[in-house]
Measured scan of single mutants.
Amino acid sequence: ILEEAISVVMSGKMSVSKAQSIYGIPHSTLEYKVKERLGTLK
């Protein structure tokens, strides 16, 4: 489920907030994982 949510957000089909409510994943977790994948994590 997490992988799917990350893919959807990264493809631009859904915002982090929308994915959070649909997949039930905490906003901070989703945002962290997306940034980690994009290489923008500081």
Results as ranks from 00 to 15, higher is better:
I1Y: 11
I1V: 13
I1D: 14
L2K: 07
L2I: 12
L2R: 05
L2G: 06
L2N: 05
L2T: 06
E3F: 03
E3C: 02
E3G: 02
E4A: 04
E4Y: 00
E4W: 00
A5T: 02
A5P: 03
A5M: 00
A5S: 03
A5K: 05
I6H: 02
I6E: 05
I6F: 06
I6D: 03
I6T: 06
I6L: 11
I6N: 05
S7K: 12
S7P: 00
V8K: 15
V8L: 11
V8I: 08
V8Y: 07
V8F: 07
V9N: 04
V9W: 01
V9R: 02
M10Y: 02
M10C: 08
M10S: 04
M10P: 00
M10N: 01
M10V: 14
S11C: 08
S11D: 14
S11A: 12
S11W: 01
G12R: 04
G12P: 00
G12Q: 02
K13S: 09
K13M: 05
K13A: 09
K13Q: 11
M14A: 06
M14G: 02
M14W: 02
M14H: 03
M14E: 06
S15P: 08
S15T: 14
S15A: 05
S15Q: 03
S15R: 01
V16N: 04
V16H: 03
V16Q: 06
V16A: 12
S17N: 11
S17W: 09
S17F: 04
K18A: 12
K18F: 01
K18I: 05
K18V: 08
K18C: 07
K18S: 09
K18L: 06
A19H: 03
A19M: 00
A19F: 00
A19T: 04
A19K: 00
A19Q: 01
A19N: 01
Q20S: 14
Q20E: 15
Q20Y: 08
Q20H: 06
S21R: 12
S21Y: 06
S21K: 13
S21E: 15
S21D: 13
S21W: 04
I22M: 12
I22P: 04
I22Y: 15
I22L: 12
I22W: 07
I22T: 15
Y23S: 06
Y23P: 05
Y23G: 05
G24R: 07
G24L: 02
G24P: 04
G24V: 01
G24Q: 08
G24T: 03
I25L: 08
I25E: 04
I25M: 03
I25A: 03
I25P: 04
I25W: 00
I25G: 03
I25D: 02
I25T: 04
P26C: 05
P26L: 00
P26A: 09
P26F: 01
P26M: 01
P26G: 07
H27N: 10
H27T: 13
H27P: 12
H27I: 14
H27S: 15
H27W: 07
S28G: 13
S28E: 15
S28D: 13
T29F: 05
T29A: 10
T29R: 08
L30G: 03
L30M: 04
L30T: 02
L30H: 03
L30Y: 00
E31H: 05
E31I: 02
E31V: 08
E31Y: 11
E31K: 06
E31R: 06
Y32C: 14
Y32K: 15
Y32P: 10
Y32L: 14
Y32D: 13
Y32V: 13
K33V: 09
K33I: 07
K33H: 14
V34I: 13
V34S: 06
V34R: 04
K35D: 10
K35H: 09
K35I: 04
K35N: 11
E36T: 05
E36C: 04
E36D: 06
E36P: 02
E36Y: 02
E36G: 03
E36V: 01
E36F: 01
R37V: 01
R37D: 03
R37H: 08
R37T: 08
L38F: 08
L38S: 12
L38R: 12
G39Q: 13
G39H: 09
G39W: 07
G39F: 08
G39K: 09
G39A: 13
G39S: 12
T40Q: 14
T40C: 13
T40P: 10
T40R: 12
T40H: 13
L41M: 13
K42A: 15
K42H: 12
K42G: 15
K42Y: 11
